[in-house]
Amino acid sequence: MSPRYLELVCPAGTPAALRAAVDAGADTVYCGFRDCTNARNYPGLNFDPDELREGIGYAHERGRHVLVAINTFPRAGDQGPWQRAVDEAAAAGADAVILADLGVLDYATRRHPGLRRHLSVQASAANAPSIAFYREHFGIRRVVLPRVLSIAEVAALVEETGVETEVFAFGSVGPMSEGRCFLSSYLTGLSPTSEGACAPASHVAYVERNGEVLSRLGTTTLNRFAPGEPAAYPTPCKGRYVTLGRASYLFEEPVGLNALGFLPELKAAGVTALKIEGRQRSRAYVSQVVGTFRAALDALARGEPPPAAALTGETEGGRETAGAYRRGWR
């Protein structure tokens, strides 16, 4: 592997995906337990404690790191699962835990002071005083920045806070008030921030009708895709709504974030790590996206231009965007 240009942090929803990420060139892999303590709580996904131990062993043998996301918010009066998750991550030898809730941060700080703590994007810390608060009170070493900042704003935060920053390089994009979005709970009755799933699969339905596909969340139809039109996830922020007689994407279009084209700018901004989103995706996606970013980072580390690569086949809606990095937030 070439000298590190930017740390490549990659998703793993299963032990097989973890191995795929490591084999494809991830510096670091993040994953979560099979329960409500992480924000990708989907059926059949995630790790039990034994699988986590084995996965960490696989990564460490190859000089890579594993982070454990415990990044949902405990239900009132029910800290138990979140505290157990922190204990199990520490016992399994995780290199860091990714946390969002103040109580869970406090527990990890007191109970496992030697365990590195990262601030999850779910904490939605997007300004210097907020990040400084988490650094001073909970000793966070890294903040995962919300997808609402321009590159100039990221650079300013790096300068002001002195905390490592991890930014999203590939995956979903939405009108994020991350960790504070309850849109899907109005349609499903389930909280995305405590149950760990926005648009939970149990409430999603796809209906094929005359070549069109209707996507539904609960009893609400969120979108209708014409024959051949690329489809998207049924999340409320990417629904197509009729206003003034016209159907349009009011909040955000179904597109995927791809920062492959401006990695040097992110490095110049002082970013430490790039995050690939997609623990709910397959190991085929992980291999493809991680391999592409690995090749680009290695080329840049050698002072060469990154090889041409197309990842639109992996993006939601079959389209890519630079998100807020280029245009700032609306």
Partner: peptide
């Protein structure tokens, strides 16, 4: 699914679980 090469119907949670 995005490319419409796979058609899913019925209980999506079961299909997602099976896939995973």
């Amino acid at each position: 699914f995005f490319r419409r090469d796979l058609v899913i119907s019925g209980d999506t949670a079961v299909v997602v679980g099976l896939r995973n």
